[in-house]
């Protein structure tokens, strides 16, 4: 049952899908990795984007996926400038940070790792993207049993209506306990 009827106040500028070793940007193949397995695939995507960002290697898989997704959406979007509270980040997934939670749970028996523990929250990826681009704006991480785009867009529209938000990166960002991954992100404008 659809939760919301969209008023289509917002415009979707770009759409990105990352799944099974492939990145689709606005429906066209942007990158295809040699491996579909999440670790090697994300590494090859990072290299393909020619990024130099030491912090990237410290991130958990969910943060890496969201970070790279945001890089692709922001690249070439000249209207997005750093040091701003006009860009909102609104994400959702089903597994929260369970992929990392399971790793952390294992480390408890030995010596708990603070570097793993910090990623046992789904919204850390929002922090990572915010640090990279100096985004001070509105943000929220929702948990949904399956991708409910309407919920996210409706909330984004309320941000456009009630806050400084002019642009938003919105969508689904999932890495499950079996290392299956799926990102469906949009860059929206007011």
């Amino acid at each position: 049952m659809p939760l919301f009827t969209l008023k289509n106040m917002s415009k979707i500028i770009k759409e990105l899908v990352i799944e099974q070793g492939t990145v689709l940007l606005n429906g066209e193949t942007f990158f295809k990795g040699e491996s579909t397995e999440i670790g090697p695939f994300l590494k090859s995507l990072y290299k393909h984007l020619e990024l130099k960002y030491g912090k990237y290697f410290k991130m958990d898989l969910l943060s890496k996926l969201g970070f790279l997704g945001a890089e692709i959406l922001i690249d070439g979007a000249n209207e997005i400038v750093p040091e701003t509270d006009e860009v909102a980040l609104v994400f959702a997934n089903a597994s929260s940070s369970l992929n990392t939670d399971a790793n952390y749970q294992e480390s408890i028996a030995d010596i708990p790792s603070p570097a793993v523990f910090v990623y046992t929250l789904p919204n850390i990826v929002i922090g990572e993207i915010s640090i990279r681009h100096k985004f001070y704006g509105e943000h929220m991480f929702f948990i949904q049993t399956e991708y409910n785009k309407e919920e996210l867009l409706k909330y984004t529209e309320s941000l456009f209506a009630e806050t400084n938000t002019k642009y938003a990166i919105v969508g689904w960002l999932e890495v499950d306990m079996n290392n299956e991954y799926n990102a469906q992100l949009m860059l929206c404008s007011k």
Binding site: D110, I111, S113, P114
Partner: peptide
């Protein structure tokens, strides 16, 4: 090495482990 506060905590774990 541009380490941060989490790295410092992780070095403490390393010393123990």
């Amino acid at each position: 090495l541009a380490l941060d506060s989490i790295d410092a905590l992780e070095i403490i774990v390393l010393l123990e482990k």
